[in-house]
Design a protein around this nucleic acid. Sequence first.
DNA 1: ACTTGACTTGGAGTTAACTCCAAGTGCGAT
DNA 2: ATCGCACTTGGAGTTAACTCCAAGTCAAGT
Lengths: 128, 128
Amino acid sequence: MRMTEVSTKFEISQDTLRYYERIGLIPPVNRNKSGIRDYTEEDLRWVEFIKCMRNAGLPIEVLIEYVGLFQKGDETLEARKELLIEQRTQLLIRMEDMKKVFERLDYKIERYEQTIRKKEKSLTRSEN
Amino acid sequence: MRMTEVSTKFEISQDTLRYYERIGLIPPVNRNKSGIRDYTEEDLRWVEFIKCMRNAGLPIEVLIEYVGLFQKGDETLEARKELLIEQRTQLLIRMEDMKKVFERLDYKIERYEQTIRKKEKSLTRSEN
DNA sequence: ACTTGACTTGGAGTTAACTCCAAGTGCGAT
DNA sequence: ATCGCACTTGGAGTTAACTCCAAGTCAAGT
């Protein structure tokens, strides 16, 4: 599969795809005889995985490390697992923070609604 | 309250506090006769609010708008409410994305554990 | 009176993560 | 064969959000 197609499929710009590959965020992609990228099924899985993880806010640096470990083979299984556990923990912490903020926003919105209702009522009265 | 104290209290660098004020992310802070910032209780509430919202990933741009609306007074109550509702929605979307990624990480970690256990077993066998 | 240190300002520098650009190559269609 | 287009590379530019710096001010302590 060519860049254009991959780019549309995952909604990642071609520049970003090349950038990701350049910095090692996805493993080197296969090329045809004239040097043009031809994404295999596995390449696509990497792209999808990286997109998904980035979307959840995992730092590029960490993902580069993961890809690097992966390419070193089976000796790094344990290290990769530990890396993922750490990221899962971080993610959970962020989700908990966000939940608190969500509730706070909820409360603030509620209070705005009350205030606005009161304002409206007092306006109506003054019109009479 | 002085910068140093505010900075330690909220774990925000003095530079960042000044930066936030400069770009309008917190309303202008009171000064004493020699121009030094003296944070009132209300200033502190703003700092805390902004820290909390930034921590959950609300963009600075949006928060600047909120602060701006706030300073315009009661005519902007509705606009402020709408702004908060929009941010709450965005936050919810991000939380849902993160939850999916969390589950995916969980699954991957599980599979790593299985793989590692198998590896260990086959190693033990080959030692016999 | 002088030093110290916490503050002030405007502006430059940094980092992460893209995003854009210029110059070049190769392949398929007219 | 030559046009157009999708691709290539190396490197520069951009944006958000800080972070740092230099030069200056002011109040308090010795």
